[in-house]
Design a protein around this nucleic acid. Structure first.
Lengths: 122, 122
DNA sequence: CCATTTCATAACCAGATAGTTTCATAACTG
DNA sequence: CAGTTATGAAACTATCTGGTTATGAAATGG
């Protein structure tokens, strides 16, 4: 919940490569080279991304011989979601307003015609 | 849902000043100077933050005389949340694992003693 | 119409980011 | 032990970021 934690988490998520890495890790542990394979990018570049993810607490690394398997840590994602949840009522309210507007339009239409077909629905 | 949109949204959220601005806007529209007031920062700095938020679609501006009232747009927050929701099962699963571990510990404790009080619970 | 308010833009700067290539280290494998 | 694999680290570069000050433009209000 600390601001720095949110800073680091959101900053880490702001890069498509890193989001792809997280998506891959959601399917299970993977080594650095496995993670690097899908990208047209040097291995050190991936290592840097992993360091960013690690500092944000989104990834932890263990040891397996020469390999350093990475594992997803979902906790910061949960905290980021918790922060965003504060705004849920806000966007739901927007939908309510939209719904209200649509209802209103529908009512006006209804009123300004006899008994035609209801094309234009939805 | 486009990657660029998520990039922009998460990048915008990665700054505490900008998150504070959004929190303020959740309470209702505000002008640039109103938004700048709480910060020890020059007005152009706030204008830059607003431009970042605007490009991310998190803020829209209208016109009222010399003032440019800002309004929160929650849609990108909803999309970011939707992305994060994909990982909800993952962190819930972690809790399950934690719960399982606790259950296991409790069982072992239970088994390794007679009928003492259950301190250490939870 | 002149002064004020509100805001944006420009130019600049320091530090962070994202990538590169090259080299080093560590642990397996034969 | 020699070679290979997996990864980290260093040095360099270009671009982005977040801030500054100084200036300019648009609209209001007397």
């Amino acid at each position: 919940m600390a601001a720095d934690q949110l800073d680091a988490t959101f900053a880490a998520l702001a890069d498509p490569t890193r989001r792809a890495i997280l998506a891959r890790l959601a399917a299970g542990e993977a080594t650095v080279t496995e993670l690097a394979a899908p990208f047209e990018m040097s291995q050190p570049a991936i290592s840097k991304h992993l360091r960013v993810l690690e500092r944000a607490g989104l990834v932890t690394r263990t040891r397996d011989a020469q390999r350093r398997p990475c594992r997803l840590e979902a906790r910061p994602l949960q905290e980021a979601t918790a922060w965003l949840e504060n705004y849920r009522t806000y966007w739901e309210e927007s939908y309510q307003r939209l719904d209200g507007l649509l209802d209103e339009l529908r009512a006006v239409e209804e009123q300004s015609r006899g008994a035609e077909s209801d094309e234009g629905e939805r």
